[in-house]
Simulated assay, not measured.
Amino acid sequence: MGKNNFFPGPDHGRGRSRNGVTPVIEGVFLMTKDRIIPYEELDDYCEFCLEPLSYDATYDSAYCAGCNEWREETCTDPKCQFCTDRPKRPFDRG
């Protein structure tokens, strides 16, 4: 994999420091769908459609709204207050 350099648009000058040197941002990023996602944040995105994940507090689980799928497995505890009644898909609550 090669190295790519990205240059900001017309507002590039706003990021200059006092001494006139443009700050350099280094790291590993994924560029997709006109957005740049830092490597450290990839866990917050769906691995299939790359949309941001949502969180459902009722079932204590992350899900992808675009795929309508949970991104966390249910646990094996038959008495778990979160997993026992969780629907097969996030929006199949009938």
Score class of each variant (00 low, 15 high):
residue 53 L to W: 03
residue 30 L to A: 06
residue 44 D to A: 08
residue 63 Y to C: 02
residue 72 E to I: 00
residue 13 G to E: 12
residue 73 E to H: 10
residue 29 F to P: 03
residue 46 C to Y: 03
residue 30 L to K: 15
residue 55 Y to L: 00
residue 58 T to E: 08
residue 69 E to D: 11
residue 14 R to E: 10
residue 24 V to P: 04
residue 13 G to R: 09
residue 20 G to R: 08
residue 25 I to S: 10
residue 16 R to K: 14
residue 49 C to M: 10
residue 57 A to L: 05
residue 46 C to T: 02
residue 41 E to R: 03
residue 41 E to L: 00
residue 57 A to G: 01
residue 71 R to E: 10
residue 60 D to T: 09
residue 14 R to I: 02
residue 57 A to T: 04
residue 72 E to D: 10
residue 59 Y to V: 09
residue 42 L to P: 03
residue 71 R to S: 06
residue 52 P to L: 04
residue 36 I to H: 01
residue 49 C to Y: 10
residue 14 R to P: 02
residue 73 E to M: 08
residue 64 C to W: 00
residue 41 E to A: 01
residue 35 R to W: 00
residue 34 D to N: 05
residue 68 N to T: 11
residue 36 I to P: 08
residue 52 P to K: 06
residue 68 N to P: 12
residue 57 A to Y: 00
residue 32 T to I: 13
residue 41 E to K: 06
residue 37 I to E: 00
residue 47 E to Y: 14
residue 25 I to V: 15
residue 43 D to W: 03
residue 68 N to D: 15
residue 37 I to S: 04
residue 40 E to H: 14
residue 36 I to L: 15
residue 52 P to W: 02
residue 42 L to E: 07
residue 43 D to S: 08
residue 45 Y to A: 00
residue 50 L to W: 12
residue 27 G to F: 07
residue 35 R to L: 10
residue 25 I to M: 13
residue 54 S to A: 06
residue 42 L to A: 01
residue 19 N to M: 13
residue 27 G to L: 09
residue 65 A to G: 11
residue 19 N to K: 15
residue 42 L to T: 12
residue 50 L to V: 11
residue 62 A to S: 13
residue 16 R to L: 12
residue 57 A to P: 03
residue 29 F to Y: 05
residue 14 R to H: 08
residue 26 E to R: 12
residue 18 R to Y: 14
residue 74 T to G: 14
residue 38 P to Y: 02
